[in-house]
């Protein structure tokens, strides 16, 4: 094969390359750089190889935070996806109810994340919060600042309230895109409500649900602002998720090397699971032929 003599076309790729370099490659390589060194101060550093990675992987507090994080994200997916589909199925299909429910659902999505944490602190306070006072007056002791289970319940409620609407909006869009003829054919074929859901609605929502699962997986795995505002990771370490712990190491203790190694491990876990979910959802229901 003859080589092209004029390679100027490569310059056309340059703008994209520069943007990607500044937005992704350079920050990532900076983190890689930190993760391989021990830094005491400006100009005082020594190359340590993969020592930080070994240390971090062996760190028990990190392992605890990791399992906590898996439990949290797992619960988020298990609750929000089915709940979101159910709400989308129950939503009105025409008339003024459509706009009314869409706007109502969108409200939690529009609130800044640390404000959400603050709202829920006040909402669940045992002395003045609507939720806290109500549930305590029913005779159930509830205090998210003192009891780990209550802190978890509050965090989950907040997360479900905050993000289920996103799943609803996606699922609703998916449902509205199904042509009327499918429902008509299902009626003529005598399909039950469950069969209509299982064989028409669910398969037709596959695309939007894939997006919903990926977004909720990534976002919940990265969650920081809301639990930080709500519990600050406590009581004890009960709600110290990965990113809360990471920030403690990086800016609290200023251990840049370990924090960088941790960040990379964190990044790879999210990437790996996103890939697995994507492949699984892409191929689900494809059968053997």
């Amino acid at each position: 094969m003859e080589k092209w003599e004029n390679n100027k076309a490569w310059f056309l790729v340059l703008p994209v390359f520069i943007i990607v370099a500044f937005s992704a490659i350079i920050p990532l390589m900076t983190v890689v750089n930190y993760s391989l060194q021990d830094i005491w101060g400006p100009g005082q550093q020594v190359f340590v190889g993969i020592e930080w990675f070994e240390e971090m992987l062996a760190n028990e507090r990190l392992q605890d935070a990791l399992w906590r994080q898996f439990l949290f994200s797992g619960l988020v997916l298990l609750i929000e996806i089915p709940l979101g589909i159910l709400i989308a199925l129950a939503m009105p299909k025409r008339g003024w109810g459509v706009s009314a429910s869409l706007v109502t659902l969108a409200v939690p999505l529009l609130i800044p994340w640390n404000v959400i944490g603050t709202i829920w602190i006040i909402f669940t306070r045992p002395d003045i919060g609507l939720f806290g006072v109500t549930i305590n007056s029913l005779g159930i002791a509830f205090d998210h600042t003192a009891r780990p289970l209550d802190a978890w319940i509050t965090t989950m409620l907040m997360e479900v309230w905050h993000w289920t609407p996103l799943v609803v909006l996606l699922a609703y869009a998916g449902l509205r895109a199904i042509p009327e003829a499918y429902y008509q054919a299902a009626r003529i074929d005598g399909a039950s409500v469950w069969a209509t859901f299982r064989y028409i609605q669910l398969p037709k929502m596959r695309g939007v649900l894939t997006i919903a699962v990926l977004l909720r997986w990534m976002d919940s795995f990265l969650i920081y602002a809301e639990p930080f505002a709500l519990t600050g990771g406590g009581p004890g370490n009960a709600t110290t998720f990965l990113s809360i712990y990471l920030v403690k190491i990086a800016t609290g203790q200023f251990d840049l090397g370990p924090a960088a190694a941790f960040s990379l491990i964190y990044f790879l876990i999210i990437l790996l699971f996103s890939f697995i979910f994507y492949q699984a959802l892409l191929n689900v229901g494809k059968g053997d032929k």
Binding site: P179, A181, Y182, Q184, A185, I188, D189, G190, A191, S192, A195, Y199, I200, P203, K204, G285, G287, K289
Partner: peptide, 26 residues
């Protein structure tokens, strides 16, 4: 009565056999 629509309506996740069997199984 049965109806055939302008655009083919199929149950995508099923085999041809299961598609044909669907109204009977229901």
């Amino acid at each position: 009565i049965a109806q055939v629509f302008q655009f083919p309506v199929l149950y995508d996740t099923m085999s041809v056999y299961d598609n044909l069997a669907f109204p009977l199984r229901n």
